[in-house]
Amino acid sequence: MMWNRKRTVIAGVALIMGVNIFALAGVFFNRSGTAESTLKLSERELTPPRWRDNKEDSGLSLKISWRVLPPEPIAKTAPDKNADDYTLYPSYSGESDWLNESKMIALGFDPSSANSRLDERSSATNQKTRDVMLVLQLNGSAYETALKRAIKYNSGSKENVKMMINERDKNSRLFVIDAGLNATTLRTAYPDRSQYAIVRGQIRPSWNADNKKKLAGVVSKLNVDTLHVPLKLRHTFDGASLILDEAPAAKLVRYEADVAFGQRLEPWITAATRK
């Protein structure tokens, strides 16, 4: 077959149009039917990027701010200043009690290889990050526990009081509370679609802090953790503060957005209002 200019044009146009149609078809499928879940996220869970002042980018994207509840043993440490402060820091990724060895085995990690490489470095890094399904809980038991800890371990120091106030008013209430390989199974366990969202994310192996021979895990990231704000909703987020750590709670721009998670578990903002 002789290749000529006409075939080049056809091939190129077909490739460009084909890829775009394929991508948009996927978007249409994701947003078709009833959403898999819909969460009402506030400025605490949807934060503007820190480089918002970048004049080179006119688009606006919001970051999904999620957390994990760290293991209780840290909070059980005899009260001293360092332990209290450590307990009160919001843990934005890391280990959690539910991500234990049996959970890691269920996710496909191999506990036996944790000891197979006799290096000085962590033996758990022998295995790499895996793609899994994560369960996000909004303003549920995990957040209540985090708030109770902040009150319980508030030693009265200026730093602790500030952290307690942050936990009550500013920190994200969205927690990763479970993981699995099958979205249907997870949805059966967490049926409330207005409080629990199932998303794709990554877990990497670690080792148990108390017992280095036991496999543990760390939730490292969500596959989609940034949401583009369409033009029609931009006005809701005008003036949103970047530096939440430094901005007093009273001066925060407050808003609430309905975030839907579709058939492919990809999110998008359906509505947004100022509070």
């Binding site: 775009n20 991508a23 978007v27 596959n223 989609v224 583009h228 990809e266 999110p267």
Partner: peptide
Amino acid sequence: NIVMLGQIFNITPSDKALLP
């Protein structure tokens, strides 16, 4: 084209984009 479509519609990053 492909990168921005992913960003606009919050599409999960995939290695399949490398093929086209």
